[in-house]
Design a protein around this nucleic acid. Structure first.
Lengths: 130, 130
DNA sequence: ATAATATATGAACATACGCTCAGGTATTTG
DNA sequence: CAAATACCTGAGCGTATGTTCATATATTAT
């Protein structure tokens, strides 16, 4: 915490007034993004959301579900992962509302919850492909 | 792994041919998203990217940097977090190329790396606000 | 009912992560 | 030069996470 000189209520240290935030290249008309700064509670919810996407197996599941609905055993086989592991991961995706499912006999077919999920996946995939 | 009956090379179990993926609601002309299914190596890089965003402190840093460039001590003060913790987190953001910085004297001013980061942040923020 | 299949779940273990603490580098000031 | 400031970094600790293993539930077949 910068021990400020006198009347500086907050912000950067004293002395070097010369170059305060010479922020020339600002963003476009900064669209409204809720409270600012981001509340701790909101940041935790957001972090949990990203955390669900921060796993290779879950991302590969999303990749498969991006093209078509699949049952658990097919997902496990296509990813060469145990069905137990897939089931655990699908639960995480379910809890985060990233996938939906429907039961047919003893099988359970999963698919992405909505197109937003696909869009997010595709956007980041493209971003990393650059 | 479903022990298939005879000539079924892969995919769902035998028997219940009745309801194979009745996937009616397909996505729009499925835009190309690279290799399919997502390669393990790619999934790991993508997971690492999301992992950087999967932390409340880093998200709040991004929140602050969304509106303006800031030095480390201001970021620490605004978030009520130690400068050491902020520095550690900024390193993670730096390594992931989510932020840029410029040195001015003994201060270091950070800002978002580019507008893609802001867009991603804003999009997910809106998504969770619904 | 019994067996087999498809999926879900809890415990446990190894790993990964974020914070604090202590110390280090670089720049400015006296 | 020494002291102060702004920031960075490595080690260590407590906690969270993903997998495996064993077991449980539900559905279908015999």
């Amino acid at each position: 915490m910068s021990e400020v000189g006198f009347m500086a209520s907050e912000s950067s240290p004293k002395g070097t007034e010369i170059d305060a935030p010479i922020c020339d290249e600002q963003h476009e008309p900064t669209r409204d993004v809720g409270s600012f700064p981001l509340e701790v509670e909101d940041s935790q919810r957001m972090a949990e959301f990203f955390a669900v996407l921060a796993d290779p197996t879950r991302l590969r599941l999303i990749s498969l579900l991006s093209s078509s609905e699949s049952c658990v055993c097919d997902l496990a086989e296509n990813l060469s992962v145990s069905e137990s592991a897939v089931s655990h991961q699908l639960r995480a995706l379910r809890n985060a509302r990233l996938v939906q499912y429907r039961k047919v006999g003893r099988q359970v077919f999963y698919r992405l919850h909505d197109h937003h999920i696909f869009d997010l996946y595709a956007t980041v995939r493209e971003h990393l492909a650059e």
